[in-house]
Amino acid sequence: MKILVAIKQVPDKNARLQIDESGTRIVETDLSWEINESDRYAVETALRLKEARGDGEVVVVTLGPERARKAISSALAMGADRGIHLVDPDFQGGDPLCVARALAAVTRAEDAPLVLCGTRADDDGYGETPILLAGLLDRPAVFLTIGVEPLDGDRLRVVRELEAARQEVSEIPLPAVLGIQSGIFDVRFTSLKGIMAAKKKPVSQPTPTELGLSAEQIGKAGRRLEVLSLAPPEKKGQCEFIEGKPEEVAATLVEKLRREAKVL
């Protein structure tokens, strides 16, 4: 089975982000980048599915500028077989629907029965792309997935995480789209051999035309959602340290919760 994994390159979690002069974007120079966390879990899930079935191909796709090539290399080093980089300038600068259209075109071109995405991107946090993608492809979709098991006859058993420590188990037919939740298991450590092997794996760069897409469907030209401003949240709230013996501290805290915060 061919599994397509859509990954996004996002700024390193520990990076200190600055907003540019336009007030709508972050400054990208000197940032370090990594694969979006839940996307890494999606890659891991794909690799485990392939290993469990003993056959198949894991193809990673990313839409992003030249720098995003490193995200593909990292996924290839983890064990993915092949990469697709939507690097053409016409792909860049779109909203989630534009990205989903490009991914849908890749899914069709690849004829991939299963597409895995991370639940949401850690940078812009839209969390829409996989949902829009499933819609465009008219496929069943399961989100907040924390476990996938292959069943006979092209069906999957999927576990979802719900609120209040509940889990839902469902069965879906392929083709399908899954949104993978992070933190569901240990993502493997990339081996040095994996890093060396990644260099020999193919990465293609299809153009919009090759994927049958017109400029208005994707990228800046296709964008209908406009970001007006970006700013750090205002700092509200204050922190108070209560000092003293543990019993006194506890008593003061209860008092404050009751009188000031009025939550008790």
């Binding site: 450590f189 990339t190 081996s191 040095l192 051999k193 890093i195 060396m196």
Partner: peptide
Amino acid sequence: EHLFEMGLMGIDVPDEYGGSGM
């Protein structure tokens, strides 16, 4: 175990001798 699995115990041992080839 992890050091071996990641290939950190044979970092510059060439590939032909089962190393990481770095």
